[in-house]
Design a protein around this nucleic acid. Structure first.
Lengths: 109, 109
DNA sequence: AAAAACACATTGTTATACTATGTAATTTGT
DNA sequence: ACAAATTACATAGTATAACAATGTGTTTTT
């Protein structure tokens, strides 16, 4: 078993799965970045580095798949809450379909 | 629906799925590069560019997941046939496990 | 004879995960 | 009361990989 290759592969696999997972989680609720990391860790055991998530959220925002709004806190720093857009929901559905297709394909080989 | 983003996403998803698919196909049989492209197209409808596959096969070779041997043809250019190694089979099994895990996770969100 | 297909390969471009680092407020531990 | 850890945002640099474009030479089809 080539453990090192497997780890590198998992990192590459994340390039496809992370946007998918983030959008899926944001369809359930709104979250701010730092919280998303913890929520995804809790839900999936997948650890996302901050240096991965923040740029990813910026990209999703630029693509109009999510929007954000700053929310003041009673104490502490304001939080940037992200919500999925209609376009985000539709795109997520298409991604879901493709995922199902690729999963079936892989299982059949 | 953001079609452009979806296509970009599929391209990123391939970074995880292609090595997995190539190893899976090579577990069934030996193939040479050019033939692999057609075989995978036939099996999965996924189109792999030559500029993607050849470097991928080089990487898998460098990681000892596959080996290759030149086979002379009665007519035409010799073909470089690839076969999966024991290490390749074991790594593929580990990849399969991780894939199952990530698929279950995504379905559950 | 020309065009298409076969079969290998590399170069340049673009996208993205991850490490390291930075800033600043707040909370916890002693 | 002070130090350390946590919360919360973000960016810069590095490594990896898909893909288009291009290249070489042979063989088959039209």
């Amino acid at each position: 078993m080539n453990e090192e290759y497997k780890n590198k592969w998992i990192s590459q696999l994340k390039k496809g799965t992370l946007p998918f997972i983030v959008l899926s989680v944001l369809r359930r609720n709104t979250y701010y970045g730092y919280d998303l990391i913890n929520e995804i860790k809790k839900l999936t055991d997948i650890v996302i580095a901050e240096g991965t998530l923040y740029p990813l959220l910026v990209r999703l925002k630029n693509e109009n798949l999510v929007s954000h709004s700053w929310v003041e806190q009673e104490s502490g720093i304001p939080r940037k809450y992200y919500q999925i857009t209609e376009e985000g929901k539709n795109t997520l559905n298409a991604m879901k379909d493709y995922w199902t297709y690729i999963n079936n394909t892989i299982q059949s080989i």
